[in-house]
């Protein structure tokens, strides 16, 4: 049962509130998932420690080609940010597709990662961008790739009763790089993704230097299509290579049949189409042509 709601003004204060709670105090930001989980008894907390008023954590910054999002940055802030639209468009698109406008005005992107749902849109895009979380705890600060934060469906490796993700950072895309986001959904708002695919490519002389392809929900967290990425690395930009990569992504995916998200068979048919579309769009944005 919730006994207190605290709004610290510094990260140090937030950490000491957590320590004082001895495992009963828990971090909250937007709270759009957590408050429901508390009401349903899926999670427990005696004290909530709200990070959203800590100065600096509401900002999206660019420094030395590194984009950083504070823990209080909302989905709508990211979706509307010129910087994100220009230098990480995959994330702007993904953030735009979460919930409704009211949810996007409240829910934070860092929360989308920490809540560890397998197909959380912003998290899928962040994995494609190679994002890293800045994690602060009483023992110090560490940087953990977003991709490594998943311990199972809805389970993060992070402990929200002692650790705080203060920021998430990733490199701004360069001129020869492009990104794209594709989503299969039943409606255009308030709909969970049946499938989502985030892609970032880097090109030189109309060849792929590398590609990062992330798909969900086809596993416990966002899944890298590593076979497809390997096919593209060093390969010419061509429709044939993109088709091969899409087929390899399908071979690596393991979706379940779900009443909410569609059957395994259906989604396995659609997945390579989304991967192909995303790769084609990302290539165009990187200045390449098929």
């Amino acid at each position: 049962m919730l006994q207190d709601y605290l709004i610290p003004e510094t990260v140090e204060q937030a950490l000491s509130h957590l320590q004082g709670g001895k495992g009963r105090a828990r971090v909250v930001a937007g709270g759009t998932d957590l408050l429901l989980d508390l009401a349903n008894g899926k999670k427990e907390a005696g004290v909530l420690v709200d990070l959203t008023r800590i100065p600096g954590l509401q900002e999206i910054t660019l420094e030395d080609d590194l984009i950083r999002l504070g823990a209080a940055v909302t989905h709508n802030q990211v979706a509307k940010s010129k910087l994100i639209q220009e230098k990480a468009s995959v994330l702007a698109r993904a953030a735009r597709s979460v919930g409704s406008l009211q949810i996007r005005n409240t829910a934070t992107v860092v929360g989308n990662v920490v809540n560890a749902q397998p197909a959380a849109d912003a998290a899928v895009a962040l994995v494609a961008l190679g994002a890293v979380a800045e994690v602060v705890s009483p023992s110090g600060k560490e940087y953990i790739p977003v991709e490594k934060l998943y311990a199972g469906v809805g389970k993060s490796v992070l402990d929200s009763t002692s650790q705080i993700v203060t920021r998430i950072q990733f490199p701004a895309l360069l001129k020869n790089q492009g990104s794209a986001y594709e989503r299969l959904e039943q409606r255009k708002a308030l709909a969970l993704p049946m499938l989502n695919v985030a892609v970032v490519v880097s090109l030189a002389d109309n060849r792929f230097q590398w590609a990062r392809i992330v798909m969900a929900p086809v596993g416990p967290g966002p899944v890298r299509a590593t076979e497809a990425e390997a096919i593209l690395t060093g390969a010419d930009v061509s429709l044939g290579n993109i088709e091969n990569a899409a087929a390899a992504a399908r071979a690596q995916a393991n979706p379940r049949s779900s009443a909410l998200r569609g059957s395994r068979e259906y989604r396995l048919e659609v997945l390579p189409v989304l991967v192909r579309r995303a790769l084609e769009a990302a290539v165009v944005r990187a200045g390449g042509n098929c």
Partner: peptide, 18 residues
């Protein structure tokens, strides 16, 4: 839905103390 600090939010999932 209410407007909080200029943005539309769903007040049923906003802790009052926020």
């Amino acid at each position: 839905t209410v407007i909080m600090n200029g943005d539309a939010v769903t007040s049923c999932i906003i802790p009052a103390l926020k």
